[in-house]
C-alpha cells in the first residue's frame, strides 16, 4: 500500500505539533503557570499519531494519561487542549479535567484516564455500543505496558473476545511503568503474547515508525471489524521523566541517549527525505507550522478566562 504524500505530511506535522505542544507545556510549568502535573509522550509521538491518523471521525478512542499524541492524532484542537492544560473555561473540559483528563466527544475521544487501566473496560463497552447501534466504526483503546498488569486489562480483553467486539487494543510499551522496568513487572518479553490467553490476535511492532503504524492500523481496523478484538503492541520509549517530578534514578543516561537516536520524528524526517522526496525546506516548513500552531494555542489559552467559581458545581450531575 502506498500512503499519499499528503498523508505523509500530515503524520509529520502531527508529530511535530505533539513535540512542540509538550515542550511548550514543560516551559509553562517552569514559568509557574500550571498547577498540577503532566505526563509527556516525547519519544512516543509515532504511536498515537500513527494509530489515530488511520481512524475515521466515527471511530472512538480511549486515551491514556500520556496521550497528547493520541489527541492530536485524532484531530483534536491544539487551542482547546492548551486551554485545558492551563485550566481555562475554553478548554475541552472547561478546566475541570486538565491534561490528564482531556476528552472530546466530537472527535471521538472517550477521554484520557488518570486511573491506569481504567479506560480499558470502558472502551469495550463503547465497542459494544457501536456494534449494537449498527455503527460501522471501531474503538481503539490505548494503554501502557504497566496497565496490562491490572485486572481490568485481563477482564476487558476476555469480555471483548467472547463478545467478538470490533476493538483494537493498543499497548504503548515504553518499557517502564513509572520507575519499574518491564523486566521486573512481567515475566514475558513480548506483551503481545498476552492476547493468546484470550484467544485473540496479538502483534508487536516498532513503535517509532509512524508510517508502518499507520498502515498496520488500517489493516487492523478491517481485521477487528471482521474477526473481533486484536492486541497491537507498539514498542517505543519515553524520553522524558514519568511526570514532571521524576528523579529518573532508575535508568541510565546511556539508555536514554540510545533511544534519542531512534527519535521517531528524526527517523520519519529521514524517511520522508530519502524515500519520498520531501525537501529540507518542505520539512522545515512543517516544523515551523507546528511551532506557529502551538504558539497560537498558547496565546488563545492565556487570553481565555478562568472558570467562574459560581459554576463550581456545574456538571456534577446531568440535568
Amino acid at each position: 500500500m502506498t500512503i499519499t504524500r499528503e498523508k505523509l505530511g500530515e503524520l509529520y506535522l502531527k508529530m511535530a505539533q505533539t513535540r512542540r505542544f509538550e515542550e511548550t507545556a514543560a516551559r509553562l510549568f517552569t514559568e509557574g503557570k500550571v498547577h498540577g502535573t503532566a505526563h509527556f509522550c516525547i519519544g512516543e509521538e509515532a504511536t498515537g499519531v500513527g494509530v489515530c491518523s488511520a481512524l475515521a471521525k466515527e471511530d472512538l478512542i480511549a486515551q491514556t494519561h500520556r496521550g497528547h499524541n493520541q489527541a492530536i492524532g485524532k484531530g483534536m484542537s491544539l487551542d482547546l487542549m492548551m486551554a485545558e492544560f492551563l485550566g481555562k473555561e475554553a478548554g475541552y473540559c472547561h478546566g475541570r479535567g486538565g491534561c490528564m483528563h482531556i476528552a472530546d466527544s466530537s472527535s471521538g475521544s472517550l477521554g484520557a484516564n488518570g486511573i491506569v487501566g481504567g479506560g480499558i473496560p470502558i472502551a469495550v463497552g463503547a465497542a459494544f455500543a457501536l456494534r449494537y447501534r449498527k455503527v460501522d466504526a471501531v474503538t481503539v483503546c490505548f494503554f501502557g505496558d504497566g496497565a496490562t498488569n491490572e485486572g481490568a486489562f485481563h477482564e476487558a480483553l476476555n469480555l471483548a473476545s467472547v463478545w467478538k467486539l470490533p476493538i483494537l487494543f493498543v499497548c504503548v510499551n515504553n518499557y517502564y511503568a513509572m520507575s519499574t522496568h518491564i523486566g521486573s513487572h512481567m515475566n514475558i518479553e513480548d506483551i503481545s503474547i498476552r492476547a493468546k490467553a484470550y484467544g485473540i490476535r496479538g502483534e508487536a511492532m516498532d513503535g517509532n515508525d509512524v508510517a508502518a503504524i499507520y498502515e498496520a492500523t488500517l489493516e487492523a481496523k478491517e481485521y477487528v471489524k471482521r474477526e473481533g478484538p486484536m492486541l497491537l503492541v507498539l514498542n517505543t520509549y519515553r524520553i522524558m521523566g514519568h511526570s514532571k517530578s521524576d528523579p529518573q534514578n532508575y535508568r541510565s543516561k546511556e539508555e536514554v541517549e540510545g533511544w534519542k537516536k531512534r527519535d521517531p520524528i528524526l527517523l520519519f524526517r529521514k524517511q520522508l527525505a530519502e524515500a519520498h522526496g520531501f525537501s529540507p525546506a518542505e520539512l522545515d516548513a512543517l516544523d515551523e507550522a507546528a511551532s506557529a500552531d502551538v504558539a497560537r494555542a498558547v496565546e488563545f489559552a492565556e487570553a481565555s478566562p478562568e472558570p467562574r467559581v459560581e459554576d463550581a458545581l456545574r456538571d456534577v450531575y446531568a440535568v
Binding site: 498547577h35 498540577g36 485550566g87 481555562k88 473540559c93 478546566g95 475541570r96 479535567g97 486538565g98 483528563h101 478562568e306 472558570p307 467559581v309 463550581a312 458545581l313 456534577v316
Partner: peptide, 16 residues
C-alpha cells in the same frame, strides 16, 4: 467539602 468531584482548575479546587 462541597458535594462534587475535585476540579483541576486551582480556583475551583480551592472553592470546593
Amino acid at each position: 467539602g462541597q458535594d462534587t468531584p475535585i476540579p483541576y482548575n486551582r480556583n475551583l479546587e480551592d472553592s470546593v
